[in-house]
């Protein structure tokens, strides 16, 4: 029973990880850009959710579509204005885009501080569990996990089985080739970035239900999301989902038997171990 509950907890934690990481993965997969403002977007959306529900009494899940759409629009705009200009610098664009989104994260964190203050906040919804026999399934985590799963599945289906999705992938794999096929690569990138940021914002709405968030949480979220996609394989949607769940289970077990410190440090240790043991898997990044 204990083992099963640890497994359930781990899988649910993994679901949260998929939620936090998959949108970052999309942006990386299509653009080769690691959006360092990712965590700031999640935190901003979460804090907005808190503010909105505190003032209207609405169910936080209602904010989900609002945050998603608003995030997508702002993401697309931000991409066009700030990220696209550095995409023309060839091999250097990776470094430059890293720096631009890094600067952007500072600005967004400041924005969050000005708008919502420095406090940690959370909302008291979906706090209890669904019981299945003696197994407990935390409601908020289940909702987040299902959302993450559906999102990953839709992304996967869209990218591999629809014309527009395939266009996106083509543009990702060979920008020059895509241009010669008449694809507007800049538009494709703007779309991908917009969707990615929209999904990150939606994730923020769910994260604030699960745990307290403050503007300062932003960089932790970015780092966590990156660790997960690095473990799962950058740009590999299925791999990231699997890695997230495995990481969740490992952490769940480690936390139970070894305590809090071990659980907290585990993702970073795993990342380094994987990097050391299998550097080849990271080679294709360039």
């Amino acid at each position: 029973m204990l083992a099963l509950q640890l497994l359930v907890n781990g899988i649910l934690l993994g679901g949260l990880y998929v939620l936090v990481a998959q949108s970052l993965n999309l942006i990386f997969g299509v653009m080769g850009v690691v959006n360092l403002a990712h965590g700031a977007v999640i935190a901003l959306a979460g804090l907005f959710t808190y503010w909105f529900t505190a003032h209207t009494g609405a169910n936080p899940l209602l904010v989900l579509p609002i945050a998603g759409v608003a995030g997508a629009l702002m993401g697309a705009l931000g991409q066009r204005l700030l990220v696209e200009p550095v995409m023309r610098h060839g091999a250097r664009s990776e470094l430059l885009s890293l720096l631009v989104t890094f600067g952007l994260s500072y600005i967004l964190i400041e924005l969050a501080l000005q708008l919502f203050g420095a406090d940690f906040v959370s909302v008291p919804d979906l706090q209890s569990s669904w019981q299945l026999g003696s197994l407990a399934f935390g409601k908020a985590l289940v909702v987040a996990g299902v959302f993450a799963l559906v999102m990953s599945a839709l992304l996967y289906a869209w990218l591999n089985h629809s014309m527009s999705g395939k266009t996106l992938l083509a543009a990702a794999q060979s920008p020059t080739g895509a241009i010669s096929c008449g694809i507007d690569v800049a538009l494709v990138r703007m779309t991908a970035f917009g969707i990615g940021v929209g999904l990150a914002a939606a994730a923020g709405v769910l994260v604030i239900i699960i745990q307290p968030v403050a503007p300062q949480t932003a960089s932790d979220l970015t780092l966590l999301a990156f660790v997960i996609i690095a473990l799962g394989g950058l740009g590999d949607y299925l791999g990231v989902a699997i890695a997230a769940v495995l990481l969740g289970i490992t952490q769940s077990v480690a936390g139970y038997y070894l305590g809090g410190n071990a659980e907290y440090i585990l993702p970073y240790v795993l990342l380094l171990v994987v990097m050391v043991a299998r550097p080849g898997r990271f080679r294709r990044i360039r």
């Binding site: 649910l12 934690l13 769940s252 077990v253 480690a254 936390g255 305590g259 809090g260 907290y264 440090i265």
Partner: peptide, 16 residues
Amino acid sequence: QTTYTLQTDFSSIALA
């Protein structure tokens, strides 16, 4: 008894 770092997942500690 345990000490912990600023983490967010307490499910394992809670279960213990």
